[in-house]
């Protein structure tokens, strides 16, 4: 029982990190049809910003400075995403292949620049001491960092769902995911919705980058690329354009990955691919997919 609980909560924690990467990817693809390969770069930029805050600006980590690092990582990645959207994506309006290629380019440039500057070795991101403690639930001993990932992802999930549900721009985004040209035919300029989605997606990925640095014991220019793959898998399983779908798929994949790995080391990734194939074969639009184009 205690092992079960440990694996379950670790799986949910991992799922929370996947969700932070996947939610933006899903919205960006859902609304604009852009396969954003630069999403991993957003994550890396968030992580390096968090590292800078945690080592240079506030070298004595406390809970508050860590929260600040996460926030700064989110803002930096969000602004970078916005910049990329304004400078590059808008100029390739509706040219989906060119847009995807350009995001690959951005991703390579960011990786190379950060690598040239900081090297490719992972750098430790200092955290408050209590992050390394463990909590006892019944007879299970569970490292507390899991709860941090879950808590932060839950807050961002609620925030994103609230924006989508209760604001005008959220209404435009939801409608645009379904039928973008009809939104413009109601006299609405969808460009603002595009920018919003890039910023929100970048923000979540940036926050995710800081947390992933804690989870995987370090910040490196290469971290974005490997997490991006999981992000794409989650988006495909959950359905393009659906935040709730991303959340469910992220949990499903995080949990099964951890359980499979417990029984056979390395089996986790294999099982994830099986889930992906099963969803693609039985429900190609994903669990909660909304995009029909």
């Amino acid at each position: 029982m205690s092992t079960f609980l440990l694996i379950l909560i670790t799986g949910i924690g991992l799922g929370a990190l996947y969700f932070l990467v996947a939610s933006g990817l899903s919205l960006i693809y859902g609304l604009m049809g852009v396969l954003n390969f630069a999403h991993g770069a957003f994550l890396t930029i968030g992580a390096f910003t968090g590292l800078w805050i945690a080592t240079k600006v506030f070298p004595n980590p406390t809970t508050w400075t860590f929260i600040f690092s996460m926030f700064a990582g989110g803002i930096a990645a969000g602004l970078f995403a916005l910049l990329m959207e304004q400078l590059v994506i808008t100029r390739l309006y509706n040219r989906h292949i060119d847009q995807a290629l350009v995001t690959v380019g951005v991703s390579l440039v960011v990786t190379a620049l950060l690598g040239g500057w900081f090297g490719f070795d992972a750098r430790f991101l200092p955290t408050p001491l209590w992050f390394t403690k463990a909590a006892t639930i019944g007879d299970a001993i569970i490292p507390v960092d899991r709860f941090i990932y879950i808590g932060v992802a839950a807050i961002l999930l609620i925030a994103m769902l609230s924006i989508l549900k209760f604001t005008r721009i959220g209404l435009i985004i939801r409608a645009g995911v379904e039928n973008r040209s009809m939104v413009t035919a109601l006299g609405i300029n969808v460009r603002l919705a595009f920018s919003t989605v890039f910023f929100i997606g970048g923000f979540a990925a940036g926050v995710g980058g800081v947390l992933i640095s804690v989870f995987s014991y370090g910040v490196s220019p290469l971290m974005g690329g490997s997490w991006l793959i999981y992000g794409f898998i989650v988006v495909v399983v959950g359905g393009m354009g659906s935040i709730a779908g991303s959340a469910i798929a992220a949990m499903l994949i995080g949990i099964t990955n951890q359980f499979a790995n417990y029984y056979v080391t390395g089996l986790g990734d294999f099982v994830v691919v099986i889930i992906l194939a099963a969803v693609l074969l039985t429900k190609p639009t994903g669990l909660l997919g909304k995009v029909s184009h």
Partner: peptide, 12 residues
């Protein structure tokens, strides 16, 4: 917009 309510369709 199928996933939006009648009210949301109109307010959009």
């Amino acid at each position: 917009f199928a996933s939006l309510t009648v009210k949301e369709n109109l307010s959009l």
